[in-house]
Simulated scan of single mutants.
Amino acid sequence: MTAAQWLLLVAWAGLTLYVLFAGADFGGGFWDLLAGGDVKGMPQRRLIEHSIGPVWEANHVWLIFVIVMFWTGFPAVFASVASTMYIPLTLVAFGIIARGAAFAFRKASTELWQQRLFGAAFALSSVLTPFFLGTVAGGVASGRVPLGIARGDLVASWLNPTSVLAGLLAVGTTAYLAAAYLTADARRQGQDDLAEAFRRRALVTGAVTGAVALGGIAVLWADAPRLFAGLTGRALPIVVVSALAGLVSLVLLVQRRYVAVRATAALAVAAVVWGWAVAQYPYLLLPDATVAKTAADPAVLRATLAVLAVGTLLLVPSLLWLFSLFQREHAVAAHDQADGPAPSGHPAA
């Protein structure tokens, strides 16, 4: 493999991790929006806040990583996408900023009206941000971003049937991942009622998202024939893996196997991301912008890969330690809750 291929492989792995981790966080905001009133929805919102609180900022590391990889390794592709898709990308940036600020301000607010205001901003931005990210992916995948500065249509490039389909699938996928992940978090904390509630939501959301994906086949056939040919051609085995993993996930949810469903749900979503990559390879931008044609100078690619190797030695163990501490905190909290409060005058162990 060439240095350009290795860099693309690593960048796509980073994109997959962003979809899985940040996607679940966005989905948490989706369920925050539908949790109900102040009293009814409070237990669900507390679970969502507790689940994403320690890691939501860390998850955006992957987005920054992907941006830097494409900016450095494939600058012409980065410039083409950023200039043609600047409207949805600007909305994405506003959504990420508004979501993070609202999430922090709601936790610090004491007035009910402030909590409602920031909660609404957090929830709405959690839905709109993945939608607009999906429209960008749909525009690129359907060949509406030609190579060159702002050479694509500034509106039709992201407001088209394939982009809308991708946006809806992005929202559905994030909601499904969040519901599937929250079932295990709720059970770990001893909140079986919430685990049941999110289990039902995961089943419904998974079925609806799967139906949208099946219906989208006709959309791709009519609106993105090259993508359709790739998905039904050499990427077909990956598409089949995604479908099978999705079905297995629904079965595991029915059986209440909440830990196992995390793996199968993640596999189903990751297979979609890699199915798109295989279907479009070796083109980064249709119709003729290949990996080799758009890659940076080999010296730049080699230097980037070397720096990436060093950075990985620092980043990956840190993230693994963060998630390990987070899960351990869940386990301790559930154990303390099960033990009940300590007797008066004696601290809890």
Score class of each variant (00 low, 15 high):
Trp221Phe: 14
Gly210Cys: 03
Gly210Glu: 06
Leu231Asn: 12
Gly210Leu: 03
Gly230Val: 01
Val240Phe: 05
Ala213Asp: 04
Ile238Thr: 15
Val212Pro: 01
Pro225Trp: 02
Val219Asn: 08
Gly206Cys: 10
Ala213Ile: 04
Thr209Arg: 10
Thr232Val: 04
Val241Leu: 13
Leu236Gln: 11
Gly216Gln: 03
Thr209Lys: 12
Ala213Glu: 06
Leu236Pro: 03
Ile238Phe: 03
Ala229Val: 07
Ser242Phe: 01
Thr232Ser: 12
Val240Leu: 14
Asp223Thr: 05
Val240Pro: 07
Gly216Asp: 04
Ile217Leu: 15
Ile238Asp: 12
Val240Lys: 09
Pro237Ala: 08
Ala243Met: 04
Ile217Thr: 14
Ala211His: 07
Leu231Glu: 08
Val212Phe: 04
Asp223Gly: 06
Leu231Met: 15
Trp221Arg: 15
Gly230Ala: 02
Gly216Tyr: 00
Arg234Val: 07
Val212Cys: 03
Gly233Thr: 01
Ser242Cys: 03
Ala207Met: 13
Leu214Ser: 01
Val239Asp: 11
Val239His: 07
Gly216Arg: 03
Val239Phe: 09
Thr205Pro: 00
Val241Ala: 11
Ala222Asp: 11
Ala224Met: 04
Thr209Gly: 11
Ala207Leu: 15
Gly206Arg: 11
Asp223Lys: 07
Ala222Arg: 15
Leu231Tyr: 08
Thr209Val: 13
Ala235Trp: 00
Ala207His: 06
Thr209Trp: 09
Gly215Thr: 06
Leu236Val: 04
Gly215Asp: 08
Thr205His: 12
Asp223Ser: 15
Phe228Ser: 11
Ala235Ser: 02
Gly230Thr: 02
Thr232Arg: 11
Ala235Thr: 00
Thr209Tyr: 09
Gly206Trp: 06
Val241His: 00
Val241Glu: 01
Ile238Gln: 12
Ala213Arg: 12
Arg226Gly: 01
Ala229Thr: 13
Ala235Val: 01
Gly210Gln: 11
Ala235Asp: 02
Pro225Ile: 01
Gly206Glu: 09
Phe228Ala: 14
Leu220Arg: 14
Ser242Leu: 03
Ser242His: 05
Val239Thr: 14
Pro225Arg: 02
Ile238Val: 15
Ile238Ala: 13
Leu214Arg: 07
Gly230Ser: 05
Val241Pro: 00
Ala224Lys: 10
Ile217Met: 13
Gly206Gln: 10
Leu227Arg: 10
Gly210Tyr: 01
Leu244Thr: 12
Val219Lys: 10
Thr205Trp: 14
Thr209Asn: 13
Arg234Gly: 03
Val208Leu: 15
Leu236Ile: 05
Leu244Tyr: 04
Gly230Tyr: 08
Val208Ser: 09
Thr232Cys: 03
Leu214Gln: 04
Leu244Cys: 10
Phe228Ile: 00
Val241Lys: 01
Gly206Ser: 13
Pro225Phe: 01
Gly233Phe: 02
Leu220Asp: 12
Pro225Glu: 02
Gly216Leu: 06
Ala213Pro: 00
Leu231Thr: 08
Ala224Tyr: 06
Ser242Met: 02
Leu227Asn: 11
Ile217Trp: 14
Gly216Cys: 05
Trp221Leu: 12
Ala207Ile: 10
Phe228Asn: 10
Gly215Phe: 03
Gly210Ile: 00
Arg226Leu: 10
Ala211Lys: 08
Gly216Val: 06
Ala224Asn: 08
Ala211Gln: 09
Trp221Ser: 09
Ala224Gly: 02
